[in-house]
Write a protein that binds this DNA or RNA. Sequence first.
DNA 1: CGGGCATTTGAAGCAGATCAATTACTGTGG
DNA 2: CCACAGTAATTGATCTGCTTCAAATGCCCG
Lengths: 244, 244
Amino acid sequence: MHETTRSPQGHPFGPLHIAEVLQLVQASVPIQRRLVRADDVVIHAGQPFANLYIVNTGFYKLVSLSGEGREQVVGLHFKGDWMGLDGIAGGHYGSEAVALDTGEIWAVSYEALLQAAMSTPALLVAMHSAMSRELVRDHEALLSLCTLPADARVAGFLRYWAAALEQRGLRTDHVTLRMSRAEIGNYLGMTLETVSRALSRMARGEVIHFAEKGRREIHIPQVQALTSFIQDVCATPVGAATLR
Amino acid sequence: MHETTRSPQGHPFGPLHIAEVLQLVQASVPIQRRLVRADDVVIHAGQPFANLYIVNTGFYKLVSLSGEGREQVVGLHFKGDWMGLDGIAGGHYGSEAVALDTGEIWAVSYEALLQAAMSTPALLVAMHSAMSRELVRDHEALLSLCTLPADARVAGFLRYWAAALEQRGLRTDHVTLRMSRAEIGNYLGMTLETVSRALSRMARGEVIHFAEKGRREIHIPQVQALTSFIQDVCATPVGAATLR
DNA sequence: CGGGCATTTGAAGCAGATCAATTACTGTGG
DNA sequence: CCACAGTAATTGATCTGCTTCAAATGCCCG
């Protein structure tokens, strides 16, 4: 989306590539590695804040729990993303981080990070960029949620996932969703049936194709088609208050 | 909500009170003050990132613009809040900051902030806390948006606004909304008519009262009643996918 | 005092939720 | 390797909360 995949060598304050950030962290602070499998809980909501977690491999969802038992997927995280950032302010993690498949995450002490930042400002900027990116992403999610109809949100979800893969140098034509229809629906603010219908509609429109077995393998001939699909759907726009 | 209004003197790494953060910033970095009036644009989306903005007085909304002209209020900001944080990652501000009435905002250079942070770690933690708080808030907004029916979201909005005022030592029984029904609706993902009806319903239920003239002055006898109202409404729950 | 905008309120329509039933896939034990 | 149980996904029919459309009222400001 933006030009975040640049900076070959990278001067101290410029934006770093995902791999460069991982190297930088590795070189600056002690890291505790942890291998996880699907459904492993990496961060428990409510636990005292101490570490930040950086995704080395795998896919993760962030889940917010309300007091009354409502739960909400509030974010997805890929290689190079930081997790646990919402714990800095209150001293406790604000949401659960759950692995969507096997992977490796790095735990680094926030205190150690602050220390290291004194001598390595680039580390600080990398962390700030991670937080900033998450804010931007949250705002995009909010925008999509409030202004797009269900079908467009599902298409936007696929596009987002594909973009995340592409940014990390992975192929985007064959995508394996790591989430059930229910999880996707929860993230997008709709029911699992609506997700299913949206996907069926996209498949019928040749925007995506399902792999022979298993409805979670999705073939996306051209990501750009998702964008057109979104715009098509929005010819009949949704009705939330338009400003002024 | 949390115990964020503590720390009388405040050791370097503990959470600071809003006024303490403002003092700290003032003592550590050069500040450019700006007086604004309602509808003044403090930050223009897309402009090159350079400064962070701290609210000294007034109320502000953050608006995200999509390429296709959709716009979405993604946040509200009060005294002590930082704005422009979404610009760090991409080098450009991601949303417009618009004043909702008169106030004073402080512009501080991000570079200067990084410099000052070297000698004043507390400043860094204050900034991180601000970002972290915004992430938490975004997640709360998402949760509310996806799991609560319209009436509950409006009540939650009032409760949020009252809590923000209380945290800043202001009275919460008489609240003056600085936003139109359309703005509120946009923020909450519903139409202005639905906002109006929700408020009417709350007034009918004695949860709030309107001041004699001007439907933006709202009397909230007891903030706690808003919470009960939300739970009442949720007896008939909304249907977004529940996880697993 | 009057024009223009914000808000309220009512009536009707619809996108998406809910309910329900079938099909497809995954893992497990024989 | 196959049968079977349990879960995930699809698809259809119906229902409903919220949007849309419409109209009246109230309020601010020149």
